[in-house]
Design a protein around this nucleic acid. Structure first.
Ligand SMILES: [Zn+2]
Ligand SMILES: [Zn+2]
Ligand SMILES: [Zn+2]
Ligand SMILES: [Zn+2]
Lengths: 474, 474
DNA sequence: AAACCAGGTCACTAGGTCAA
DNA sequence: TTGACCTAGTGACCTGGTTT
C-alpha cells in the first residue's frame, strides 16, 4: 500500500467531506467537533471510533477481557496497530495559549506541528514499555512539549531550560490525583490537544494518525475520558468508577434541581469529562443508563447499611420475564455487538426470539413462517439499534425511523435491558398487537428501568412506546 | 564550592550587571524592579525565579506530586533554604509600625539586616513542620527567624524567643481573613519587604539568599501573591480564586475606566495588593489572560441571566512620551525601512535620538562624544531590528544577540511602536543605566503595548526587558 | 503468574463562610 | 466586596482477591 500524495482536487473544505484512501471520511461537522475537546461526548467519540475502526484496523478497542456477564466477544477485525502517532504535538498546550480564554479568532499555527510522514497502515513497533494503566498519563507522558519551531528537529531538548512556558517548575507530566479539572499551561492537560486540520488539509496524515491513536484507547462510557477497564460492568474511567462506588455506598439519592431545564442534563452535563462533576444526579443517572450495575458494588459494611434508601428506590428488581428477555438479548445480540449484514441480523434475531419462550410461543413454529415474521420485525429492531446503541447498522438504511425514534429524546444511549425491552415490545406489537399479558409486563419493566436510568426525561417511556410497532414499519 | 568574597572591581552599579559566581546576573532593570515590591508582577517574578533556579538548584518550585514509588529522589539537589526571611513588616496591617506609616523617603537600613554567610549551594534541612497552605501565614510565622549566624546549625529553633532584627511584636501570627487593606486604609504590603541591595552590594549574599528563599514559593499568576495551588487551571492565590469564582457566578461585566492609569492593568498590574483602587476589570482580564477557565466554575444558579458576559478590555492610550518616541522612530527609521549600511544606520539613529528630547538630553551634546555613544548603542539597536522586524540588516552580523533576543518568543514580528520602545529602552540602559524617569515610562509603555498586541505571551515584556542593555552588548 | 477489577487512600481543588 | 480558612468531594494510584 502506498500513500497517495495529497491532491488539491480532493480538498473540499469545509463543505464537502474530505476523503483519503485508508482513512475514514471527515466532514465539516465532525471536524469542528473533533477540534473542540470541550464538547466531546462518549457517544460521539464511540461513533467516530467505530468509523475509524472500519477504515484503520487496529484502532478498535481491543480489550480482550469481557465482563463475566456477557462473554460473547466481538473484536471483528484483527488488531493490527498502525502507525506510530506523533502525539508529541498532542500535548502542545504547554505553549499554546490557553484556548479557553481567548480562542476567539486565533488562527492555529498548523505548520508548527511536527512533520511526520506516516502511511496509515504502516506497521508499528511494540511500544510496550512504561505503559501506565491510567491512560491519561500515557497521553501525558508523550507530551514533552514541542518547541516553537517545529521545523528544526531538536529531539533532544533535554535541557529543561529550553521550555517556553512560564512556570519554571519542571513540571512532572503526571496528573495529580483527585483533580477533576485540567491545569492550563501545563503539560498535564488531560484532554490532549489534538492536532488540527489545516485549512488546506496539508497535515491530513499527521492529524488522522493522531486521531486513530487517540481512538485506540478505550473510552469511558459515562464521560468519554480514558477508560481503565470494566468497572461495575461498564468501560469507565477511574473517576466515574469511584463516583459510582461512593454513591452506592452512601446510598445517596441525587436530585437534579434543574430537571427538564437543567443545562447540565445528559448531553451537557455528565456527558463529557469537562463538566462531569457539575451535576451528580445526571452523572449518576448516566452511570445507570450505560449499564453500571449496583450489584457489582460490594456493600458489606454495616456502616453502609444503616443509611436508608431515601428517594429513588435503588433496589429495583427486574421481573423474571424481563430478566429472561435481557439475558437472551445479551446472549445473542447485545448492544456491544455490531450486526454486520442482513443475514447476520436475521440469525441473531432468530436466536434471540427462540431463547425467549414468551416470545417464541407467540410466533409461528413453521420455519418459513417464522422467517417471514422476523423479516417483518427486523426493520424495526434494526432501527431501534441504530437509534439507541452504538451499532452503526451500515448495511441497512433506516434514517427515517431512526429520526422518528430519537426525536426529542435527550439521552439516546440505552443499555442492553432497555434495548431488549424495546425490541421485545416492538415484536409483540407487530406480531400480536400488544394484547398478550407479557406485553404489559414488558412495558412496566421498561417504564421502571427508564425511571432509573433516565430519570430526567418525564414521559420518555410513553413517547417511546408510542413510536414502536406499526409506526416503525411505516 | 567556596564563596568568592565580594570584589569591588566587579561592582559596576548601576551601569553594568552585577555578577557573582553561583548567582544570576542582575542588571539595572532587574535591580530597580526587585527593590520596588509595588511594581512586582508575577511574570517578572517567575522570570527571575527561573533564573534563580538555574543558578541555585533547589529554588525551583517542586510542588508537583510525586508518586510514592519514587520516594528516593525528591529534593534532587540541595535545597538551600538560605536565610530566613524577616518579613515581619509584611503583614503589618494589623500591627504595622514601621514602613507603612512613614515610608516616605526612609533609606533602608541595610546593615541592620541579619548577617548571614551562606553559600548558595548549601545543604538544606527538611523544614517540614507546620506549613500552612496559606503561604502568607508561613511568611508571617517565619518571623521566628533564624539567628544571625547562619553558620551554626540551628535545626531546632524551637524557642520562640530568638527572633530576628526587625522589630517584632509577637502578635498573632495569623492573618485576619478577608482583609485586603488595613483599617487605616493605608497600602498594605503583604508581599514581604525583601532586603534590598545596598549601593555597594555589601549585602549581596544576604539579599540573594532572601530572594532565592522567596522564589521557592509558588506565585499567583494573577497577582504575584503566594499561591495555594491550582485554581481554575492556574496557580493562584485564595483571593484571585475567590474573585474569579464570584465574577463568573455573578457574570459581572466589569468596565475599566482608568485606562493606562489603572493599577491593575496589564502593564503595571498585579502585585500591587496594597493599592487602594484595585481595578476589577483588569483583574478579571488578567485572570482570563493567564488561563483561568470559566468552565471550571460550577455555575448552578440562574440568578444572573440578564448580565451579559463582558470582555472587560480596558482601552489604553499611549502616553505622550511613548507617542513622541514612536513618532520619531517612524519618521527616521521605521520598520518598513531597510537600513542598508553602517553609515545609513548611524545617521538614522542619530536623527531618531535627536528627535526625542527625552533621549537627546541624556546624551552628550558634543558631536564627537555623541557619535561614540551612538556607536555603543548601535549594535543593540540593529540586533533588535534584525530580530523583530523584516529589515535584514545585511551589513552587520549579529547572530548571537538576535538569537538571544528571539529565544522563546513566539511572535517575533513587532510593530513600530514596540521596536521604538525597545530601542529607546536599550539606549537608556546603555547610556544611563536605566535610572532616568523616562525609563520607567518606556517600560510601562512597552508592557502596555505588548499586552495589546501579544496578549498571548504572558511575561513577554519582562523577558524582553531583561535581555536588553548590557546583555545585548555582551 | 498475569490480567483484571473490587475497595481503599489521600493529595488536591471545588464551593462556602464570615469577620473585616 | 475581600480572602484566610473550612469541608466535601474527586480521582490517580495502590493493594489484595479472583479469574484465566
Ligand atoms: Zn468517566
Ligand atoms: Zn442535572
Ligand atoms: Zn492572586
Ligand atoms: Zn483597570
Amino acid at each position: 500500500f502506498q500513500m497517495v500524495p495529497m491532491n488539491p482536487e480532493l480538498m473540499h473544505y469545509p463543505n464537502q467531506p474530505h476523503m483519503m484512501p485508508g482513512y475514514p471520511m471527515i466532514n465539516a461537522y465532525q471536524q469542528s467537533y473533533l477540534q473542540n475537546p470541550a464538547q466531546w461526548t462518549p457517544e460521539m467519540l464511540l461513533c467516530m471510533q467505530m468509523q475509524m475502526q472500519q477504515m484503520v484496523p487496529g484502532t478498535a478497542t481491543n480489550s480482550t477481557y469481557m465482563p463475566p456477564q456477557s462473554k460473547n466477544t466481538v473484536t471483528p477485525n484483527a488488531t493490527s496497530p498502525l502507525s506510530q502517532i506523533s502525539d508529541r504535538d498532542s500535548g502542545n498546550d504547554t505553549i499554546s495559549p490557553p484556548l479557553t480564554s481567548q480562542n476567539s479568532a486565533t488562527t492555529p499555527n498548523y505548520h508548527n506541528q511536527p512533520q511526520m510522514q506516516l502511511t496509515p497502515l504502516q506497521q508499528a513497533k511494540p511500544e510496550k514499555e512504561e505503559i501506565s494503566p491510567y491512560a491519561i498519563n500515557n497521553i501525558l507522558s508523550s507530551t514533552q512539549s514541542s518547541p516553537d519551531n517545529g521545523n528544526e528537529a531538536d529531539d533532544k531538548e533535554n535541557s529543561s531550560v529550553r521550555r517556553n512556558t512560564f512556570p519554571a517548575s519542571s513540571a512532572s507530566t503526571k496528573k495529580p490525583r483527585g483533580t477533576p479539572y485540567d491545569r492550563t499551561n501545563t503539560p498535564m492537560t488531560v484532554v490532549p490537544q489534538m492536532p488540527q486540520f489545516a485549512p488546506d488539509f496539508s497535515n491530513y496524515n499527521l492529524t488522522m494518525n493522531a486521531w486513530s491513536e487517540f481512538f485506540k484507547k478505550d473510552r469511558c462510557m459515562v464521560c468519554g475520558d480514558n477508560s481503565t477497564g470494566y468497572h461495575y460492568g461498564v468501560q469507565s474511567c477511574e473517576g466515574c468508577k469511584g463516583f459510582f462506588r461512593r454513591s452506592v455506598h452512601k446510598n445517596i439519592a441525587y436530585v437534579c434541581t434543574k430537571g427538564e431545564n437543567c443545562t447540565f442534563s445528559y448531553e451537557n452535563c455528565a456527558a463529557n469529562r469537562g463538566v462531569r462533576t457539575r451535576c451528580q444526579a445526571c452523572r449518576f443517572a448516566k452511570c445507570l443508563a450505560v449499564g453500571m450495575n449496583r450489584d457489582n458494588v460490594r456493600v458489606n459494611k454495616e456502616t453502609d447499611k444503616d443509611v436508608k434508601p431515601s428517594v429513588a428506590s435503588p433496589n429495583f428488581e427486574m421481573t423474571s420475564q424481563v430478566k429472561e428477555l435481557t439475558a437472551a438479548f445479551v446472549a445473542n445480540m447485545p448492544c456491544s455487538t455490531h450486526l454486520t449484514s442482513g443475514t447476520h441480523a436475521i440469525g441473531a434475531i432468530k436466536k434471540f426470539i427462540e431463547s425467549v419462550p414468551a416470545l417464541s410461543s407467540l410466533l409461528p413454529k413453521d420455519e418459513k413462517a417464522l422467517e417471514m415474521s422476523i423479516q417483518k420485525v427486523m426493520s424495526g429492531i434494526l432501527a431501534i439499534r441504530a437509534a439507541f446503541t452504538f451499532d452503526p447498522i451500515t448495511f441497512y438504511s433506516c434514517e427515517n425511523p431512526v429520526n422518528l425514534l430519537r426525536g426529542g429524546i435527550r439521552n439516546t444511549v440505552f443499555n442492553d435491558c432497555e434495548v431488549a425491552l424495546l425490541s421485545g415490545i416492538h415484536i409483540l406489537q407487530i406480531v400480536n398487537g400488544g394484547v398478550a399479558e407479557i406485553f404489559t409486563s414488558y412495558c412496566q419493566g421498561l417504564r421502571h428501568q427508564l425511571s432509573q436510568t433516565h430519570l430526567q426525561e418525564i414521559g420518555l417511556c410513553d413517547r417511546l412506546l408510542m413510536r414502536l410497532g406499526p409506526y416503525l414499519n411505516q
